[in-house]
Amino acid sequence: MFRKTITMIALIPALFAVGPARAHHSFAMFDPAKVITLQGTVKEFRWVNPHTSLFVNVTGPAGQSGVWAIELTSPGNLTRLGWSRQSLKVGDRVAVEVNPLRDGQHGGGFRKVTLLDNGTVLQASLINIEKAAAGGH
């Protein structure tokens, strides 16, 4: 009985840790009803867990120019879709489709990127790839 009690007490902190981990994966900060395309050059591509991120120097209409922080999925998910840490390089000219942040800051949730110098399109979701293959958005 004493061991069960000790085990239960030891598990309580682990249960509390699950809440923040689940909350971390919320994408509520992005507006799924809006899709914008940004053009610019890759400033940085971070291949890290739990989410990769892309920073793009955007040149565009007023309100869009500046550095945009774009959140992608995990490196593991991207690897399964054919990506590598070399898929995007500093200086690459890109058009990036994102769901922008709801608060209007320069950031968004990644949808797809087109490398402007060679036309390569990279996506981070099988759903988006299947829609594109079917002629959808």
Rank of each mutant, 00 (worst) to 15 (best):
F16G: 11
L88T: 04
K4E: 02
V35F: 02
G76C: 00
R22D: 09
G40Q: 01
Q86C: 03
A69V: 01
G40R: 00
I127H: 04
W83D: 02
D103P: 09
L54R: 07
W47F: 14
I6Y: 00
I127T: 07
L115R: 15
G136A: 13
Q86D: 15
V56T: 02
T52L: 01
P20E: 08
F30A: 10
T41K: 13
L72A: 02
I12D: 01
F30M: 02
G40P: 02
P13H: 06
N99W: 15
F55T: 03
Q64Y: 12
S74N: 08
W83K: 01
P13I: 05
G19M: 12
D92L: 11
G76F: 10
A124F: 06
P32T: 04
K89V: 11
T52D: 12
R93D: 09
G76V: 07
H106T: 11
G109H: 14
I129S: 08
V90C: 00
H51L: 03
G119P: 08
G136M: 13
G91P: 11
R22I: 13
V48I: 15
T41M: 02
V94W: 02
S125K: 11
V18Q: 08
T7S: 00
L116W: 05
M8T: 00
V90G: 00
E71I: 10
A14V: 13
D117S: 11
L81V: 03
G119C: 07
L81T: 03
R111L: 14
S84L: 10
R102I: 14
V113W: 07
H25I: 11
P50I: 07
G91V: 07
F55Q: 11
S53T: 12
R111I: 14
M29Q: 06
A124N: 15
F2T: 00
L126N: 04
G66L: 12
I9G: 07
S87P: 13
F27L: 08
V58L: 11
T41V: 11
H51Q: 02
G136L: 15
A133T: 10
L126E: 09
N57F: 01
P13V: 05
G66F: 06
